[in-house]
Design a binder for these strands. Structure first.
Length: 282
DNA sequence: AACCAGGTCATGA
DNA sequence: TCATGACATGGT
């Protein structure tokens, strides 16, 4: 067991961070959050300024939860209007988690044209079917399957995981990235637009999924993923977006979001997404 | 029973 | 380049 005392000037809220829909494999059980990240099973809880965790050391948790990122500075940089201001107030302490690229890519392949509970189910089924067993406190967990573990099966076998028409996308991505082991370093080293272009060469990864992957796995915080919710929020609360004319509606909203919110537009997007239920959208 | 969900692809003008 | 329809699945 390890504990970590949070600095008073650096807000962190574990519940907001894990329940906002950026990660899909964390579950809250009797006061603790359990999750599988990479090869490890992790267990965390927060009591005010104290984080208690099992399964990895301090450095892992600092990196994973981005505890060294200057969140007040990020808040200030995106706090441009009353709508985002209220979202920041409501979800202060939400941090963008640093996800493993491979799992993040497959997760957002599963996420297209779907909803969060079903995305979680698909990812759980994939891990159960093709991942490795890991035991933790007498409970069995499964790691997320590697490219090899997925590509060694055919599409039909993958489709046991309720992937629907996405099964061939996952399969092709597993085959290709399995043969391209340097892809993570390559994407990480590329500037945002070029990295985005590369990810979009994967079948099934469009503008929105690419932006989620860049934001959640590659720390490209300028990325502003546009899904149906963000689209509704922007159309309702940020009519200025209409001054942008290049591309389709989602592309115009993306351009607006990046310009309006700046280098941490992705944080703004995440706070708005979390606040989607509270914002009027008619 | 229609309609929707953290969209993307292929097609056609 | 942009709009349009198909697409698997499960929940409401």
């Amino acid at each position: 067991m390890v504990t970590l005392t949070l600095r008073p000037d650096q807000p962190f809220n574990l519940d907001h961070t894990l329940s906002c829909g950026q990660v899909f494999r964390w579950e809250q059980r009797n006061g603790w959050w359990y999750g599988v990240v990479g090869e490890r099973v992790l267990k965390v809880r927060q009591e005010r300024d104290t984080l208690t965790f099992h399964g990895a050391g301090r450095k892992f948790f600092r990196d994973y939860f981005q505890l060294d990122a200057d969140l007040p500075k990020i808040h200030n940089s995106i706090d441009r209007d009353p709508v985002i201001h209220a979202a920041i107030e409501a979800y202060r302490g939400l941090r963008i988690v640093w996800q493993p690229p491979w799992e993040c890519t497959l997760s957002y392949l599963c996420a297209t044209y779907s909803n969060i509970p079903i995305i979680r189910k698909r990812i759980e089924l994939l891990s159960h079917q093709f991942g490795d067993e890991v035991w933790f406190e007498g409970v069995r967990f499964y790691t997320f399957p590697s490219p090899e573990q997925l590509s060694s099966h055919c599409c039909d076998q993958l489709n046991g995981c309720k992937l629907g028409y996405r099964a061939p996308y996952l399969h092709e991505t597993a085959c290709r990235l399995g043969r391209e082991p340097g892809w993570e370093e390559k994407v990480a080293s590329l500037p945002y637009e070029e990295a985005r272009h590369y990810l979009r060469t994967l079948k099934g990864i469009g503008p929105k999924a690419a932006d989620c992957i860049l934001l959640f796995a590659f720390q490209k915080y300028e990325a502003f993923p546009v899904d149906v919710w963000i689209r509704r929020i922007v159309e309702r609360h940020y009519p200025q977006y209409a001054t942008y004319h290049k591309g389709d509606v989602n592309e115009r909203i993306r351009q607006f979001g990046m310009d309006f919110f700046g280098p941490y537009a992705g944080y703004a997007q995440e706070y708005l997404f979390c606040a989607r239920e509270k914002l009027s959208l008619d």
